[in-house]
Simulated scan of single mutants.
Amino acid sequence: MKMLLTVQFPLEPFNSHVRNGKAGEIIARILEDIKPETAYFTERDGKRGGVFVIDLQSASDVPRYAEPFFLNFDASCEFSILMSPEDLEGAGLEALGKKWG
């Protein structure tokens, strides 16, 4: 199942990793391990952040994706389900509207 993993990095320990030259190396190791479909780095609520599209096979995969960010950066991680237009088409919205609307 495709998921959007949104990560927010607190200033510390990220700043310390930048100062000691380790931030890029750690990020590269994490990306190599989680192999996101896409990866973007951006600002999140005034802090460093990242947005990644990943493919979860089961809910038990969540720690595999989150722990590297938790343990290395004290980051927060949010997972959101992604649907393609085809997924949405197959959701049966018309029938749900008739049943619940």
Rank of each mutant, 00 (worst) to 15 (best):
L88Y: 12
F41I: 01
L96P: 00
G46W: 11
F41T: 01
P10S: 08
V53K: 01
S80L: 12
F41A: 04
F73H: 03
D55Q: 11
V7K: 01
N20G: 05
V7Y: 00
G46Y: 01
T42G: 08
F14A: 14
K99F: 14
A66D: 01
P36K: 02
G46A: 04
L4F: 06
R19I: 07
A91Q: 12
L71P: 13
A23F: 10
Q8R: 13
A95S: 06
H17V: 03
A95C: 12
P68H: 01
S16R: 11
L11W: 07
L82M: 14
V51Y: 10
E86R: 11
G101P: 07
I81R: 10
W100F: 14
I30Q: 03
A66C: 09
D33W: 08
G92H: 03
E78S: 14
F41N: 02
S84K: 01
L56V: 04
A75L: 06
R44E: 00
S84W: 05
H17I: 09
G97L: 15
G46R: 10
G92I: 07
S60H: 11
A91E: 09
D55S: 09
K2D: 06
G21M: 14
G46V: 04
N72Q: 12
A23G: 05
P63L: 03
K98Y: 04
I27L: 13
L88M: 12
F70I: 02
I26Q: 01
Q57M: 13
E78N: 08
P68T: 06
P36D: 06
M1Y: 08
E43L: 13
L82W: 04
E43S: 15
N20V: 12
L5A: 03
F41V: 05
I34F: 04
L82D: 06
R19E: 10
T6W: 00
G92L: 02
F73K: 05
